[in-house]
Amino acid sequence: MQDASSFIRKAYEFNKNGFENAYNAMGSLQEQAEEVTIRMISENPLFPEPAKKMVKSGFDACKQGRDSFKGQVDKSQKAFEELLTAVNL
């Protein structure tokens, strides 16, 4: 039984770390894309100001969605960790 509980805990930690790494990589890519896009459109005099604001608000909405998703995953992981602790795994 000890082997099974050890396996469950290790599998959970592996998946948790995998999610964290993927989330951080996705966040880095999105931040770099935002930075490059904002720099390109801010230096372009033909790009109208309302369109610049719209692009910026799109990036802000994406960031909010990403943070909200992370919050829900963290909440679920905490609940699962509590379950593992409750059953001594």
Rank of each mutant, 00 (worst) to 15 (best):
L83G: 11
F59I: 02
N44R: 02
N88H: 10
L89D: 00
R39K: 15
K63Y: 04
E34G: 05
P48N: 09
G65M: 03
E31T: 06
T85W: 04
S42F: 08
K75Y: 07
S68D: 12
E82W: 02
F7R: 13
M54A: 15
V55E: 00
A51I: 08
L84P: 01
F14H: 09
E35D: 08
D3A: 11
K16Y: 05
S5H: 14
N44I: 01
L83E: 12
G27D: 09
M26C: 11
Q64Y: 06
N15C: 12
N15D: 13
T37E: 02
M40N: 12
E13F: 11
E13G: 06
G71R: 04
D67R: 07
L83F: 13
F19S: 06
E35K: 07
N88P: 00
L46T: 07
K75N: 10
L46M: 05
S76W: 02
Y23K: 04
Q30C: 06
M1D: 13
E34F: 12
E20W: 05
L46W: 08
S76D: 08
D60K: 15
A51V: 07
P50K: 03
E20G: 01
K53T: 13
K10D: 15
K10N: 15
V36L: 14
F59R: 01
K10V: 10
E81W: 00
L29K: 15
A33W: 06
N24W: 13
I38V: 09
D74S: 04
A79H: 04
F14K: 15
F7D: 07
L89W: 01
M54V: 08
A25S: 10
F47G: 05
F47V: 07
R9H: 15
M54S: 12
P50D: 08
A61E: 05
G58P: 03
L46R: 05
F59T: 01
L29V: 13
I41W: 00
S6R: 14
G18H: 06
F19N: 04
R9Y: 15
F59Q: 01
P48D: 04
Q77Y: 09
P45N: 05
G18P: 01
A79N: 02
N44Y: 01
I38S: 01
K56M: 03
E81Q: 10
G71W: 04
R9F: 14
L84I: 02
K56T: 04
D67F: 04
M40G: 03
K63N: 03
E82F: 06
N44G: 01
A61L: 08
R39V: 10
N24F: 12
I41Y: 01
N21K: 13
